[in-house]
Amino acid sequence: MKVVVGIPSYNNAETISHVARTAAQGIVDFFDGDGMIVNSDGGSADGTRERFMETDTFGLPKESFVYEGLPGKGSAMRAIMEFAMKQGAEAVVFLDSDLRSVKPWWIERLAGPILKGEADYVTPFYLRHRFDGTITNNVCFPITAVLYGKKVRQPIGGDFGVGRKLLEIYLEKPKEIWNTDVARFGIDIWMTTTAINESGRVVQAALGAKVHDVKDPGKHLKGMFLQVVGTLFELVITYENAWKEVWKIEDVPIYGETPQEEVPPMSIDIENLKKLARETLEEVEYIDRSILSEVKENGTLSLSSWIDTLYRSAVQYRKTRDKRVVENLLPFYFARTVRFAEEVKSLSDEEAEKYVYEQLDVFLEKKRLFKEEWEVENKR
């Protein structure tokens, strides 16, 4: 079998049928119908699985099951990987179950480079609103690029293509990993970082605009932030021998042309974020007083201060392996999100995107001090 499209879900009855039908059309149009659609569900109470199984998939086989293990996206995706291996699939395409912008040709973009032997892992390359993807823009993209040397723009994008070689690598990892936040929202950054470090054959797929259920950073993203950043910090420990030697950032090939599409408008609650930043701020000894004062007084955080805070927190996490280090980072993330929004509010989405890339220079500049502090802590 060429392609298995896996759709992890939890209470997505309103959107999953569209995703499944579109994915099936993609397999029919681009892979001669050589594939199937699989839904791995977290025990939805809104009829998600029933809606999925009722969907017309143009004669393609489909299957829905409730996964085992910790509740979370990662557990759902692991079950899809195991299923795909048993089916002998050459590639797995993962699609978020709340996608409204998915097109049939996305399946070819995400699986094509794998089936052509050009990649083991395909990440999405989206057009996104400048206020969307705040964890990506401020944490995952710059850290992935600067530490591991690959400009993977959407390391936690949700929609991926994975080849058989990487499926084997993922499933051969110790089972204990699936009792961590990798079983939840940590899965995307874990998959991407593992792919970069253990395969290196990564391609980005031009998918155009991503339209999905938009989440406000201050109201919806706390759990995701904790799980993603906690996993990211663990990976910094896992791959420290690799990132210590990386001082150049390479572009990652983009497969296909980016379509010119309209990015839907969105907004975030700036005043709520400022309030949260001030009210949840904890006095932590490993963060400079001047940075704490910056958040207390303004509810915002400059880029330089944010990078110092992020790197210092990673060092502290290495020292303690205490999840409270990640929790203590939340108010700084809120404050940085505010400042970033203020910095790009008068820019176009294209100009804001350019600014996101320009920030990499500052992250890279500060990496040497981060490495020194990391190594000092390692010797203690």
Rank of each mutant, 00 (worst) to 15 (best):
F370C: 01
L235P: 02
G35C: 06
Y10W: 15
V284K: 08
V362T: 12
L221W: 10
R49M: 15
V211K: 15
N138M: 09
I189Q: 01
G74R: 08
S64M: 03
F340Y: 15
R128S: 12
A352E: 00
V139A: 05
R336T: 00
E283Q: 11
G133D: 09
A24I: 00
F83T: 01
D34W: 09
K222Q: 11
K210F: 13
M77H: 07
E245N: 11
R368S: 13
M36Y: 09
F160V: 04
A341M: 07
Q227K: 12
I254Q: 09
I189K: 01
Q87N: 10
K150Y: 14
V326F: 04
D56V: 05
G47M: 11
L70M: 12
R380L: 14
P264M: 06
V344T: 07
F363Y: 15
G112C: 06
K244T: 09
L292N: 03
V362K: 15
I107G: 04
D56E: 11
I169M: 12
Y357F: 15
G208T: 06
G163Q: 03
E234A: 05
S304I: 08
R128D: 10
V252F: 10
T144I: 11
E63W: 13
E353A: 12
E261L: 10
Y10R: 11
L171P: 08
E261M: 13
F31A: 02
V28N: 06
S9E: 00
L276D: 00
S348H: 04
V315D: 00
D181Y: 15
L235Y: 05
K354V: 10
G35Y: 06
M266Y: 10
E250F: 10
N179K: 14
L329A: 04
A341C: 10
F58M: 12
T57V: 15
V263I: 15
G117T: 03
A111I: 07
L226C: 02
H220L: 08
Y357Q: 09
F340P: 00
G26W: 04
K371N: 06
K345H: 13
E14P: 02
N12L: 09
G26L: 04
Y239E: 03
D251E: 15
Q316D: 10
Q87T: 06
E343S: 11
V326A: 03
G230R: 05
D98P: 05
E262K: 13
I114V: 14
V326N: 02
L60A: 06
E353F: 14
R324K: 15
L147A: 13
G161Y: 03
I135E: 01
N378K: 15
W374V: 01
V122W: 05
G117A: 03
E283T: 09
V202S: 06
K116L: 13
T192Q: 02
E279I: 01
I270T: 05
I196E: 00
Y239S: 05
K296A: 01
G163S: 06
G112D: 00
A84G: 09
S64T: 07
V203E: 02
I177G: 02
R78F: 07
R184K: 14
L171S: 09
K366G: 03
L364K: 14
F160S: 02
E198I: 08
G6L: 03
K248H: 14
Q204T: 04
G218E: 01
E271M: 12
Q87M: 13
V295M: 02
E342K: 13
Q204V: 04
Y286N: 04
G59R: 05
T134N: 11
K371L: 12
V162S: 01
N179T: 11
G157H: 03
